[in-house]
């Protein structure tokens, strides 16, 4: 039961992007299309789950004072694996994600979960936590990617979805559009949380 809760909390209640406000850099940069968002979400989830599990396994032997270098080595290894795998098997996705694959190393969510959760909990719970946070991050990316791609290009997964002759609102695929969409979604999540709290009281 607890395991399920650790999984679901990452999706809405403590969504990494919209509530914890972590990993905003990839959220702004890689959400230009749903395809990229899904790819980035999956890559990050893979790294997050693997690093959470490994760190949870070795948490008892890591000396407190060198814990951060240890976490980073573990995380960087998994990121490099993801990078090599994408380059070898999905070159198109690898090309469009570009610099943001290696940058998963410095994604705050991963180090944050290692420090805050995996270093204090068992392997099973850490796995569920990593999975939940990864899925929450991925869903956030997909939501932003959906809004930005539909409005900014009239397309979804690089296929046309709006009527012929739709004039794309180009700003949405550019950085200012990312900030606007993120701002609106943050506002929406705050509203949601306020109403949830009210109904609980």
């Amino acid at each position: 039961m607890r395991a399920l809760r650790e999984f679901t909390k990452g999706i809405i209640e403590r969504n990494p992007i919209f509530v914890l406000m972590l990993g905003l850099c990839p959220a702004l940069a890689v959400s230009t299309s749903v395809t990229d968002a899904v790819g980035m979400g999956l890559a990050t989830t893979f790294v997050l789950v693997c690093s959470n599990v490994s760190i949870s396994i070795i948490r008892k032997i890591i000396p407190y004072r060198v814990r951060i270098p240890c976490y980073i080595v573990v995380i960087a290894s998994f990121v490099t694996i993801v990078k090599l795998a994408l380059n070898a098997y999905l070159p198109d996705l690898y090309k469009s994600l570009g610099i943001f694959v290696p940058l998963i190393v410095v994604n705050c969510i991963i180090l944050g979960r290692a420090e805050a959760f995996a270093s204090r909990n068992g392997v099973g719970l850490s796995f569920m936590d990593g999975l939940g946070m990864g899925v929450g991050f991925g869903l956030g990316l997909v939501l932003m990617g959906f809004i930005r791609e539909v409005i900014g290009a009239g397309e979804l997964c690089h296929l046309r979805v709006l009527w012929k002759g739709y004039e794309p609102m180009l700003v949405m695929t550019q950085p200012p559009g990312a900030f606007l969409v993120l701002g609106f979604l943050l506002g929406l999540f705050n509203l949601l949380h306020r109403n949830l709290k009210k109904s609980k009281d």
Partner: peptide
């Protein structure tokens, strides 16, 4: 000594793993 040993072994393990994947 423990810090050095642990960090070194983690690095060695991940280096071996990466070498294999590469």
């Amino acid at each position: 000594l423990k810090m050095v040993c642990v960090l070194t072994s983690i690095c060695v393990v991940s280096a071996l793993g990466l070498g294999y994947v590469y």
